[in-house]
Amino acid sequence: MNDQALEYLQRDPDRHPPAHAPGYKTSVLRSPRNALISLEHSLSEVTAPVFDRALLGPKDHDLVLNHAREGLPVGERILVHGFVRDAFARPVRNALVEVWQANAGGRYRHRNDRYLAPVDPNFGGCGRTMTDEHGYYFFRTVKPGPYPWRNRINDWRPAHIHFSISGSAWVQRLVTQMYFEGDPLIATCPIVRSIADEDAVRGLIALLDRAHAVPLDSLAYRFDIVLRGARATLFENRLQGGE
């Protein structure tokens, strides 16, 4: 592998939100005070842990069942699925996809969550899966509820699911949130509004996918994810080693 192939595309500042977004109040104290410095990638950035599918439990991808103790969790059962690809549309194989979320009432199973919605004893709110050879993933869960947060008076978070995706390199690691098509709270969320690019916002919204719903059981939502792509030598009109 040559040095050029080791380089990954830089983050696009026009699509990603700024670290300092005054409308999102907690970003003010935790954002850098000085301009970021671009460094050449080294081995520590272009490699990452290799995950073994055998380490996953049989219910890790099923948030409906993986914490059920004395019944099933309350709420609308849904499937979330999609593809993880890089910026050159190549599938990211064997990527670890971790998710966590609030329950159907909008409350996290966390000791610091003081929202008045009850904790669901049969819902843990976290799971994980891995992409296949085509970059495809899926998991089952219940649709999370919105909840108020102390950003400004009467600010509410839209229903969302947190994602952490670990690709084949540390520079591909992505932590993001998925929203649901048609949610009116998306347009007023200060976190979402910190993203200036409307196309980037649409990329965070999962679309209802009736074709993959389970009849009389679960609706489905499609959420595709794009990670950074590794630069590669151009060969005619294709990327060397590309799909």
Rank of each mutant, 00 (worst) to 15 (best):
F51T: 03
V80N: 01
P49F: 08
P73L: 08
R69Y: 02
V46D: 04
G71H: 08
G57W: 11
R69G: 00
F51D: 01
R33C: 04
H16D: 09
D14W: 04
R93W: 01
R33P: 00
H41N: 13
A19H: 09
V80A: 06
S31N: 08
P91D: 07
V50G: 01
H67V: 00
F88W: 13
S38C: 03
V50R: 13
G82A: 10
R90D: 15
R77Y: 03
V74E: 15
S27I: 10
H16C: 05
Y24V: 13
T47P: 04
V92L: 07
E70I: 02
S42G: 15
L63Y: 02
S38G: 03
R69F: 03
G23H: 08
F88Y: 15
L56Y: 09
G23L: 12
S31R: 08
K59F: 10
L55M: 10
V28G: 01
P17W: 11
D14G: 09
H81R: 15
A89C: 06
G57P: 04
K25A: 14
L56S: 11
R85Y: 02
D14A: 15
V46S: 12
R77T: 11
K25I: 13
L79E: 05
R30L: 08
D14H: 12
V92F: 07
L43F: 06
R93F: 01
G82W: 10
P58E: 07
A48Q: 12
T47W: 04
D52L: 00
S27E: 09
T47G: 04
H41W: 05
A21E: 01
V84H: 01
T47R: 13
H16Q: 09
E76F: 02
E40D: 10
K25G: 09
F51A: 03
L39H: 13
R30E: 06
K59I: 01
R15Y: 00
T26R: 14
H16L: 11
G75K: 11
V28S: 06
L43T: 06
R85F: 03
R15V: 05
G75F: 05
R30N: 10
A68Q: 03
H16P: 00
R15L: 05
A89T: 03
H20A: 08
R15Q: 10
A89R: 14
V84E: 02
P32H: 01
Y24F: 14
K59L: 15
A87G: 07
R33Q: 14
R85K: 15
L65H: 09
L29T: 11
G75H: 10
P91Q: 07
V28F: 02
D60S: 15
D52M: 01
F88T: 02
R53D: 04
P73F: 07
A68R: 08
R15E: 03
R93P: 00
A35N: 13
G23S: 11
F51R: 08
D14I: 02
L63D: 01
D14N: 13
R30M: 08
I37M: 11
D52V: 00
V64S: 04
I78P: 07
G82R: 12
R77N: 02
A21K: 06
I78A: 05
E70W: 03
L79Q: 09
I37C: 05
P22I: 10
H20G: 00
H41K: 12
L79N: 11
L55A: 14
